[in-house]
C-alpha cells in the first residue's frame, strides 16, 4: 500500500516531474563544510547544458561570497553525485554524465575548513 486512502489504488499527482520545468531539470549543489550557506542550493538548468555551466556560472553565483571561494584549487576538489564519488567531465552535458532531475551534486575542498575552521 503506497498510501492509506479511501480510494483503492490511489495514485498521487507527481507535482515535480521533469516535464513541469519547461525544459529544465532541478539540480542541487552543496559545498561540504561551508555552512555560511545555510543549505544546499537549487537550480533549474537544462539537462543538455555542459558541466562547465555549473562550474563557471552556477557555483560562483551561489558561493563566491565566501572568503575561501577564491582559494579553491578546482583540480583538488572532490565531487559526489547522489552520494557516489564522481569525476565530472567539463565539456559533457549534465545528462551525458548521469546528472538527472533532482540530483545532488556535492563538492568538498580539503584544506579549506570554513570560517576560522568552523565548517561555516
Amino acid at each position: 500500500m503506497a498510501v492509506a486512502a479511501i480510494t483503492e489504488n490511489y495514485v498521487g499527482e507527481r507535482l515535480d516531474r521533469v516535464e513541469n520545468f519547461h525544459g529544465n531539470q532541478v539540480l542541487y549543489v552543496g559545498w561540504d563544510h561551508h555552512l555560511m550557506f545555510c543549505a544546499p542550493v537549487a537550480f533549474a538548468v537544462p539537462p543538455d547544458a555542459p558541466f562547465s555551466k555549473v562550474l563557471e556560472e552556477l557555483i560562483p553565483g551561489a558561493f563566491s561570497l565566501h572568503p575561501e571561494f577564491g582559494e579553491i584549487d578546482w583540480n583538488q576538489v572532490e565531487w559526489h553525485l547522489n552520494a557516489e564519488s564522481f569525476t565530472p567531465d567539463t565539456n559533457a552535458t549534465l545528462a551525458e554524465q548521469g546528472i538527472d532531475h533532482k540530483s545532488i551534486l556535492r563538492f568538498a575542498t580539503p584544506g579549506l575548513d570554513g570560517l576560522k575552521g568552523s565548517g561555516s
Binding site: 503506497a2 498510501v3 498521487g12 499527482e13 507527481r14 507535482l15
Partner: peptide
C-alpha cells in the same frame, strides 16, 4: 506513503 508525498507543493 510515497503516493501522498509525491504531491508535496514544494
Amino acid at each position: 506513503e510515497p503516493e501522498k508525498y509525491v504531491q508535496s507543493w514544494m
